[in-house]
Amino acid sequence: MSKEPVLEVRHVTGGYRTPSVMGRGRGVYHEVLHDVDFTVFHGEILGLVGESGTGKSTLARMILGLVKPEQGEIVHHTPRPQIIFQDPYSSLNPAYTVEWTLEEPLRIYGKYDAAERKRRVREMLARVELPEECLKAKPDELSGGQRQRVSIAAALIRRPRFLIADEPVSALDVTIQAQILKLMRSLREELDLSYLFISHDLNVVYQLCDRVLVMKAGRIVEQGTIQEVFDHPQQEYTRRLLAAAE
């Protein structure tokens, strides 16, 4: 792990607007994040923990540019950050086969011919440890764990260097969880990735992450290495989270 940043979130404040009614007004603004400030360094897995509703997913959307911050700025040092979602049932297009889904990012990129695309798809499929038969399957023929592997493959096929994982194992059985976490760890080494790993499950964060951010009501209340935060929590809120996870 080097001290080179891949993502800097600088004093970001923001939220979302409820849709305007009949084009009147701009809708009601709900501030979700307050002065959020942190850096993801090259090669690390940074955990983001907090109860549901504290703004973890809003932060993810903002980092990806899907929501604009009201104040502050977000600086990416790597191109095309990608995300994998919690729900493996809505993250793959049900109309298409796995092969189509994996090839689509390369088609959009447009720089590779069909043979090269097929080669890259097969290579990535092997990396996420799925058999070739999966290529012809539609998402509804796959298990939850297999779907999550396909989602990871699709997110990584254009070789991003930074990946947001928004509760990627929360919908899976414990044994499948362990397999996916192991896969994410080995992919980090092989593909030189950095992760922002969002989870409400502190046990999972403890297993996987190097550092952790604790979020409460849209603020980062504590951050540090896993050892620092888990062994010597400074905040009452963190202590309560840890106690609840015992």
Binding site: Q82, F85, S90, L92, N93
Partner: peptide
């Protein structure tokens, strides 16, 4: 706002491509 459409957008798919293909 379905996840696979968000993913397509992050991949850089054009609006037309998202509507027609996805």
């Amino acid at each position: 706002d379905v996840n696979y459409i968000t993913s397509a957008r992050l991949m850089g798919a054009s609006h037309f491509r998202i509507m027609a293909a996805h």
